[in-house]
Structure formats: structure tokens, C-alpha cells
Amino acid sequence: MRNLTVGDVMTTAVLTARPAMPLKEAARVLAEKHISALPVLDADDHLVGVVSEGDVLLKQGHQIPRRPHWWEGRRRRDTLRRAAGDTVGHVMSAPVETAMADDSLARAARLMTELGVRSLPVVDRHRALVGIVSRADVLSTFLRTDEEIRAEILGEVLVHLLWQDPTGIDVGVHDGVVTMTGVVGERSTAETAERLVRRLDGVVDVVSELRHRVDDGGLAHPR
């Protein structure tokens, strides 16, 4: 059983910016290409930041620049410094959270939710940009059909991983919600089946009504 990773769904043809790019040019690219952010690369093509629609709006919202006062909070002083610049390097957000190609989609989704961002740059171990993953990319995993999910449960989970006879188990999938009924050998097998199915891409919820012939204590039973 293989879950999709960031590398499976990310976009590899990524528009980028350089720190010296004029802010107006970055704004034009964002508007014309209908994207929310541009990864910013240094001379060695390593990721150094991200310039987003929000960063451009920061400049627009401070049309009368002024020097920050020492008594203002750190975040406020940083905002004023960034707003005073006219290049991507001045206003970009840095450092920036990233994903790696072998990260799970669950980790990418959690990061985007926690950070309140629409996308994450994807880098290799040298911080070189290899792609970008968006909320839409992650959500695409939920577009798997019920038939595809059911086929993976029967063939991959039950037969290949758990060595179960699928003819004794009824599996139904409706709008991503999986229902399993039938009889398996051990209680631990029933619990394992539910856990594995919950991890499948596209599964929204699992209703397991699997019964067992032998109570081996379940997954918590010491072996």
C-alpha cells in the first residue's frame, strides 16, 4: 500500500523571482499568471524566501513610508522596514517553511493549515527548489472515485497485506466513506484493517462492523 506523496502531486514547472526583481514586476507576474506566491531564489538557485500577494499588499498599504520608532514592537518595526523597500528582496517573507518531495500529503496539508498559506515550496536536501505544492494539489487526492478506493481496499489491504479472503467481507464506499462488514479471524486483524483503510488517499471516514472469530486482545495485546 503506497500513499501519494508531495512529489506525486506537486507542480515542477515553477515561476520564480530573484531578490533584485522590482516589486512592480513581481506584482505583474502574480496578477497575469493568477498565482498567489513566487519562490525567491539566490544566485545559486537556493530558496531564500517567498514573495506573495500579501507581501505586495504590504507595500501598497504603506504608501507613505517612515522610519520605525524604537518603542514600536518588533513585528511592527519589521513591517515598516519591509514596506519601505521596492524590490522582492525587501518585502519577501523569510525564512520560509518548505516541504520535501517524499513528505506525506498529510504533513503538507497540516503545514499549510497551520501557517495559513495556499502553497509550499518543495526543496531537496540542499534547499534547491524542485517544485511547489498547493492546497488544490492536496485536495486532488479526494477526487479518487469510490470504485478506485474500493478496489484498493479489496486488492491491496485485504488480500495483499492482511491475507484475507475478500469474498467473506463486504466493502462499500460512498462519497469516500467506507463501510466494512463481515468476519475475519482475529480481533487484531479487524482493527488493523480499519487503521490501514483510514490511511488510504481519498478516504473520508470508516465505519467498521467487522466481527472476529478469535479475541487475541487486539492491537494492544503484547506479543
Rank of each mutant, 00 (worst) to 15 (best):
R66A: 04
A109I: 07
H90A: 15
D102W: 14
W70S: 08
M112G: 01
E114K: 09
R77A: 00
R110K: 08
A83Y: 05
T87K: 03
M112N: 01
A99C: 12
L120I: 11
T79W: 02
I64R: 13
W71R: 05
D103R: 08
W71N: 03
T79N: 05
A106N: 06
H90F: 01
E114A: 08
G85D: 11
A83S: 14
R67H: 14
R110E: 11
V96K: 03
L111W: 08
R66N: 12
G116F: 13
G116N: 14
I64K: 12
G89A: 06
L120G: 03
S104F: 12
V117Q: 04
A94E: 09
V91S: 12
L105Y: 14
A101Y: 07
P65Y: 00
S104Q: 14
T98I: 15
V88P: 02
S104V: 03
L115P: 03
S104R: 14
K59G: 11
A109V: 03
A101E: 15
K59R: 15
V96A: 04
D86Y: 01
T87Q: 05
V117Y: 10
P65E: 07
A99W: 02
P68M: 02
Q63V: 02
R67I: 00
A106W: 05
D103P: 01
M100F: 15
P65V: 09
P95I: 03
H62P: 03
T87D: 04
G85N: 11
M92G: 04
R76M: 08
L80P: 14
T98N: 07
D102Y: 07
V88L: 07
E97N: 02
R107Q: 06
S119L: 06
T113K: 11
H62R: 12
M92L: 09
R76T: 09
D78L: 12
E72A: 00
L120T: 06
S93W: 04
R77I: 01
I64D: 14
M92N: 03
R74Q: 12
R76L: 10
R82S: 15
I64V: 13
A108D: 08
G89L: 06
G61Q: 07
S119M: 04
D103N: 14
R66S: 12
P95V: 10
I64H: 10
H90S: 15
R110S: 05
E114L: 09
R107M: 06
A108V: 08
E97R: 01
R76K: 06
P95N: 12
A106H: 07
S104K: 11
R107N: 03
R67N: 13
P68F: 00
P121Y: 07
D102I: 06
R77E: 00
D78K: 10
A99D: 08
D102N: 09
A83D: 10
T98C: 13
V88N: 07
T79L: 04
A99Y: 05
L80I: 01
V122D: 06
E97M: 06
